[in-house]
Amino acid sequence: MLHTVNKSPFESSSLKTCLSLARSGSDVLLIEDGVYGALAGSTHSPLVTEALEAVRVYALEPDLKARGLSGDRLIPGIEVVGYDGFVDLACTNDKIQNWL
């Protein structure tokens, strides 16, 4: 199952709710302000680092770039994908939960 999160973890509990309900083996894609959840060294990083043991976490490259975030600022283990990768994730997962 693919989960998307589009809110900063500093503003909303979406990321926390998503990670607490996503089953092991799920894909979690951070888009829009959700990409701030991919930042290493933030107060929310431990939550994501722990989640990486059970789920795959992706961050959308155009949204990272738009916010001045380069790959070396991200939590290790997070995979960066473009919109083509987003489409692929939406195909390979048989359902999608957008945490709005």
Binding site: M1, L21, R23, K95, I96, Q97, N98, W99, L100
Partner: peptide, 10 residues
Amino acid sequence: IEEQDILLNF
């Protein structure tokens, strides 16, 4: 949630 086909959030 895992059992569903379509998930809509409001």
